[in-house]
Structure formats: C-alpha cells, structure tokens
Nucleic acid binder design. Structure first.
Lengths: 204, 204
DNA sequence: GCCTTAGTAGACAGACCGGTCTGCGCATCC
DNA sequence: GGATGCGCAGACCGGTCTGTCTACTAAGGC
C-alpha cells in the first residue's frame, strides 16, 4: 500500500488488535484479560502489538480513544438527525443510550470500568475515561444551552447523572429498562427546569 | 477468651483482614491487589486467611456483605432520624450520599467495581453487588410508596439512576459536587411526579 | 537483485498470582 | 507437667503475567 506512511497509524493488524481487545476487555474486564489472550484471539504476534503500543495500558487507552470517537460520532449523528426542537435533540442522547444498552455487545461502560481498574491519576486508562466523560458533559451542556433554561450547566450535570446511572444499572441488572427510565426522568427534569428570567426553584 | 466459640465468625484477625482488604480494594481495585498485600498490611498469616475464607473471591464477597450491612445501617439511621414528612425522609437518602462521597475513604462504589471486575453471573462478588443494589432499590421503593405518587416503583427506579450516577460521577471527577446535583434532581423529580389518582404524564 | 518494512513464531526473563503445606511458638486447660 | 489447638512465618507449587529478544518469512519499491 502506497499511503501506509511511517509506522504506526492505521494498519490491518492494529485494527484487529483494537477490535479484539475491545471485545475481550468489555466482556471480562481489563486486568482479567492477559495480553496473550488478546494476541491469540486476534491472530497477531506479540511483537506486532508492542510495535504499535508501548504497553498494555497504552493499548487500553487506544481502545478507549477509538471507542470514544465512535460514540461521539454516533451521538452526533442522532442529534443532527433529530428535529429542530432543542428539547427533542437533547432527548436524542437518551435514545442513543437506549440503543446502546440494548446492543448484545453491551457489557457495561468501558470507561467507568477503566477508571475503576486503573484508579490512579497517572494511569492512562483513567485519564482517557475522565477525558471522555468530560466530553459527554460538554455535549449535554451545549444542548442544554440551546434550551431556554435558567441554569443549563446545572441541568446538564443532572442529566449526566441519569446517563451514567442508566449505564450502571443496565449493566448491574442485565436489562436495558434503565435507559427508558432515564429518558422519562430526563423529560421530567427538562419540563420542570426553571426557564430563563424566571426566579425561584421550580415549584412552590 | 471464653465466648470465642467454634471457629469462624467474629475474630480479631478476621476483622483486621476485612478492614485491610476493604481499604486496599477500594483504593486500588480487586484484581490489582494480591492476597499477599492484604496479608502483609493486616499482619496476618496466609493460613489464617484461608481458615476464614475459602478463596480470594470469598474474601471479597465477605467484604461486600459487611460493607453492605454497614451502609444499610447508616441509611436506616438517617431515615429514622428525619422528620415524619415522607418527602424529607426520602431525601435523607441523598443526604447520606452526600456525606458518603465526601468521606476521604470514598474511592468509588465498592459494589459497582466488584461487578465490573467479576462480571460473570457465577462470580461471588458480582452476586453480592447485585444483591446489595437490589436492596437499595427496595429501600427507595418503600420510601416512595409512602409518598402519594401514582407510580412509586417507577419513581424509585429513576431515583436510583440519580443515586448510582452520583456515585460514578463523584468517583470519576474526584469531587463530591455530584451528590448535591443528585439531591436537587431528586427534589425536582419528586415535585413533578404525578400524584395518586391523577392522570397523564406530569406536564402538558 | 537488493533492501526496506511489516509481520510471525516462539523462547525467554523475572516477577507475581492464588493456594497448599510444614513446622514452630505460645497460651490455655486439665 | 503434659496435651491440645490456634495462629504465625515462610517455603513451596504450578501457573500466569507483562515485556524483550532472536531468527525467519514474504511483499514491494527501486
């Protein structure tokens, strides 16, 4: 291939490694899956792995980065496909969530698990997880700002709680029902949020 | 000691093991902490551990069970100490949450992490985590039933999403702010929930 | 024909894993 | 004083972990 370029970057073997690693890590956890298991399942030699990634942690970080980009793309697609109404666009995030936890490949949030298993601030997986979840909150914040609510940042934080909570509960209970609950709760929060220019706390 | 009794059950060494293990597992994760590290930190011999627990997984399950009981007791204390008003009693759960994530020993939810690291249905830690979280939902359900809301089970599920979400976000962002957000969101959900005998979905 | 590049297979090192076993110290009770 | 039994220290087992290294193959560009 002419455009292959320097060394790393996209490569069939590299992609196979990332695909396989993502699946195994999702199903069994990061520390429970050894490098050799990934190698065997991907049909790749060990040296090839260490040519692309300096360490297992770096492989994990790469998996998370790729997965994060894929999620961001899927989310953006859903949002732009939604009608103009800002409320509907915001709720599209929860529609995406519903579809995500319904997928047979869903085994809990890769990022939450990564932060759990590599909890030190200097661990690469932890950093990748923090960055991704911050991006999620930023996305929600942007959508909330399009609403005529008095405190879009606060609403975004509340919605993120529903989002993460649904991921956790769907994983723990092995059922996607939590996503629908999250959507309903999001609708309620949205409807009862104080509008711009309005004083006070919603009810009373 | 006269009342020491048979063998297992409460014992100073056993308690030291559980205390130490809980701290290390919380800080570093379950698979990242070896048996030897727990032993060394607790000042206990290996044979003593295996006299009390059949395996590492069983030790983890025992840690989770004890911690679950402690949490249930703390929660119950807060709830019974709250005024008679059912809404206030329900929100006491989120006051407990606030205090929990503010503790310097908070390093994320032990149960969520356990289910992440031992995801198979037959794993003891996973089972302990599921049982505990089910108990949490039951508690919320009971409190919601004291409210005059049309769908107490549904409301309880939504509140649990906030609860778990706050645990995760507080862990990921290393700040207890999420707990206050969760409480505010819970208040909003509570205020906007359809009352008994009322039809429809809250607004419109 | 030659040389670079990407990849393979597999041995290897050194540490660490969970779990078992032996043997010793020490207190208690008869 | 002797027997009993708990807990301790630590050696030990087979297996697995991440990461390194060597030697070989095969495809393409010039």
């Amino acid at each position: 291939m002419a455009a292959s370029g320097t060394t790393t970057r996209s490569s069939a073997k590299r992609d196979a490694l990332l695909d396989t690693a993502e699946g195994l890590f999702a199903r069994h956890g990061y520390r429970a899956v050894g490098i050799d298991a990934v190698l065997a399942a991907a049909g790749v030699a060990k040296m090839t792995l260490y040519k692309h990634f300096r360490s297992k942690e770096e492989l994990i970080a790469a998996v998370l980065e790729r997965r994060g980009n894929a999620i961001a793309a899927g989310l953006a697609k859903r949002i732009t496909a939604a009608p103009e109404d800002p409320g509907t666009r915001l709720l599209a995030v929860f529609d995406w969530l519903e579809q995500a936890v319904r997928s047979p490949e869903f085994h809990g949030c890769l990022f939450i698990k990564a932060a759990s298993e590599y909890p030190a601030a200097e661990d690469l997986p932890r950093q990748a997880a923090e960055a991704f979840k911050e991006g999620c909150r930023d996305l929600l914040e942007g959508l909330c700002r399009d609403l005529a609510v008095a405190d879009p940042e606060g609403l975004a934080r509340q919605l993120q709680l529903l989002f993460e909570g649904a991921l956790v509960v769907a994983f723990l209970q092995r059922t996607p029902l939590a996503a629908a609950d999250a959507r309903r709760a999001a609708e309620a929060l949205l409807a009862s949020a104080p509008r711009t220019g309005q004083a006070g706390g919603g009810h009373r």
